[in-house]
Write a protein that binds this DNA or RNA. Structure first.
Lengths: 219, 219
DNA sequence: TATTTTTTTTAGATTTGTCTAAAATTATAG
DNA sequence: CTATAATTTTAGACAAATCTAAAAAAAATA
């Protein structure tokens, strides 16, 4: 079984993986808050354990086994986040750090019973889908708010930045999960967006819009 | 803040501490499943951090600071055990290992909210008292079943062995928390005990009786 | 294509917690 | 009270995960 640290590497490699582009050493180093040399060392070890495919100077990608391990950690992380918000009254911007710790608890029975206790939730407090026992996502087709054009409407179903500052900012603007909105105008020069939310007009930057995930509605 | 391993040492030293007798290196080694040499190394480090008083060849005992840290871990361990039994339908013999992991999660907010969520329980599923935020126990005066004499009655309010085998055995005999019982006879030659439980007579060894904690009733 | 820059890897050291084997200390027994 | 036994500590080593500094490879630029 992978160590605590190995699990963190796998999770980060998973999140950095696009469709068949290899993940670079430096990218991992930045996310792990460590040095490239340390990453190289770890990649060799993970390759040894057949959790990643690794070719020197070419970056890595996960093997089947590595991906399964990563998804398992993500499952645990997201279930614990639901627990913290639903049962312990944490706010959506308070859960990340604690879930980072809880995700490493090793007990299959625990996580299956937690899942049942929570009523088999499909998404976490940020709208991210929770994989089932077999690692399958019931994935809703997300688009970002920047992909909506003038006059289109949708519902906020996720966010792609989990930092406390970002989430607190959204909350202040009432841009929380489930919120319906309409794009009034997208500014050409900077991509910022004017929205109609709760019958009020608000204005957000492109940077913010990029991290808000939408399910389009066709009214 | 102490490391994961340091926390385990503190907890074990706490459990091995009697009234002002120093705890021996070998005793710690046995509980930690490690070698005496490793324990010596760790004791030096804990002494450095002022978590224990340590004199070479004389054993250790906890400082105020060390005791507070140990009690904090015990509090977390026991609260998680209550959670596992009350909310996730674990049995009392299944919780120990998982709680050993959960007790190391570092979040004051988490543990205070968990406490509230559970309704501020006073004892864990084995009857052990749960210290409050300030490390205070609401300690009931326990005696062991071996201290009851012929004809005396009492209620099971705790156990001092948390192993799965022991707990499963008790369960089979219906010797669970809250169970009322009466001592019919204590055998002189081996200290084994004949009990009246649920209107049935059962016989248990001294070894077993020693680990059953009783609150005496005066009927 | 040759040169510079960026990225990645190697080599060697450090820290944490562990180990074995041997030495030192304390306890026990005749 | 000395000899033996048990306990504890030191010395030196190891594995995991990290680091710095320098070398190697790949990418970018002229």
């Amino acid at each position: 079984m992978p160590s605590f640290t190995e699990e963190n590497y796998l999770k980060i490699i998973y999140h950095l993986s696009g469709q068949d582009t290899a993940v670079q050493t430096n990218a991992i180093a930045e996310k792990m808050q460590t040095r490239a040399a340390s990453v190289t060392d770890m990649l060799k070890k993970l390759a040894e354990k057949e959790l990643v495919h690794y070719v020197r100077y070419q970056g890595v990608h996960l093997t089947q086994k590595g991906r399964a391990a990563a998804i398992d950690i993500i499952r645990k992380h997201r279930l614990w986040e639901v627990f913290l918000v639903e049962k312990l009254q944490f706010k959506w911007d308070e859960v990340h750090e604690v879930a980072e710790e809880l995700e490493h608890i090793r007990s299959t029975r625990l996580i299956e019973r937690l899942d049942a206790f929570l009523g088999f939730p499909k998404v976490d407090p940020h709208g991210d889908p929770i994989p089932d026992q077999h690692g399958r996502f019931s994935s809703l087709p997300f688009i970002t708010l920047t992909q909506l054009t003038n006059g289109e409407t949708g519902t906020i179903t996720g966010v792609s930045d989990h930092s406390s500052v970002f989430l607190k900012y959204l909350e202040k603007l009432q841009l929380t999960l489930g919120q319906a909105l309409k794009v009034i105008d997208v500014m050409d020069f900077d991509g910022s967006v004017e929205l109609l939310v709760c019958e009020q007009s608000i204005h957000i930057s492109k940077e913010v819009a990029k991290h808000i995930l939408i399910t389009k509605s066709y009214v």
